[in-house]
């Protein structure tokens, strides 16, 4: 299946269909989600109206991590099968993931002020998200520093794969270091402990963020793929022109 869609033309056909679907779904779900989250859900009995920050914060944190996993998977696929498209995917995912990470940190800070009384708390989860941001930045800086695109692709893939092992260890070590966050409350073996009136808007927002990220990634992926093709065609044209010149002279 991977090889099937690594064909640029097939990918282009697929992306042309998927981009408007993802974009449309993202817009609709965001509209519904924001309306539910901000107007049509009850305030929390403890946190009051500030609970509404959760609906923009939690999905952003989830996307920050999910996109890193996607980055690592794309890197792995590139590393093993050498599909150029997988590398392009890794390349376009990184900045989008970094932005979601920043959004998660920023909204978390806004939520922390009324809840914990500080903008920033050196607690386990916040700290590991900050480390995640550094990992994204390191990956992007390495790619940017390497001029040769093939070197950038391979070296970046190795760093991204090492990064995911690292992030797992960081998670455990930082938990050991300190924790102030509430324990996980949505995905648990005995079912979510969050009330359904809050779970629904949260789930819709999470879905909306997912489609938004998918839309952005596919859109940029397609533009990058087209740019590569345009460059290849340009090179071909230049070569033909040169050959014709030589033939004339």
């Amino acid at each position: 299946m991977l090889s099937y869609f690594s064909n640029p033309q097939r990918f282009d056909q697929l992306a042309r269909v998927l981009i408007p679907i993802f974009g449309g779904l993202a817009l609709v779900l965001l509209g519904v989600g924001v309306w539910l989250a901000l107007f049509n859900s009850p305030p929390d009995y403890q946190q009051g109206e500030t609970i509404r920050i959760m609906y923009v914060h939690v999905p952003a944190a989830y996307m920050a991590m999910a996109l890193y996993v996607a980055l690592a998977v794309a890197s792995f696929v590139y590393f093993v099968w050498r599909h150029a498209l997988a590398d392009t995917a890794a390349e376009v995912i990184a900045p989008i993931g970094a932005v979601f990470t920043m959004l998660a940190l920023f909204t978390g800070s806004l939520w922390g002020k009324p809840m914990w009384g500080t903008w920033w708390e050196w607690d386990a989860r916040m700290t590991s998200v900050l480390v995640l941001l550094l990992v994204y930045l390191g990956y992007m800086a390495l790619r940017a520093a390497l001029e040769d695109s093939q070197q950038a692709a391979r070296t970046g893939a190795i760093l991204a794969m090492a990064g995911i092992i690292n992030l797992v260890i960081v998670k455990f070590s930082v938990d050991w270091w300190s924790s102030l966050h509430q324990p996980a409350s949505v995905i648990r073996l005995d079912g979510p402990t969050i009330h359904s009136s809050q779970l629904w808007p949260l789930a819709i927002m999470a879905l909306a963020y997912t489609f938004l990220a998918g839309w952005l990634v596919l859109y940029r992926l397609r533009s990058q793929a087209l740019r590569r093709r345009a460059r290849a065609l340009q090179r071909q044209r230049d070569q033909l022109a040169r050959q014709r010149e030589e033939a004339v002279s």
Binding site: L137, G138, L159, G163, N166, V170
Partner: peptide, 9 residues
């Protein structure tokens, strides 16, 4: 920039 996140643990 690359090494510091890895040195966290």
């Amino acid at each position: 920039l690359i090494a510091t996140p890895m040195m966290v643990p």
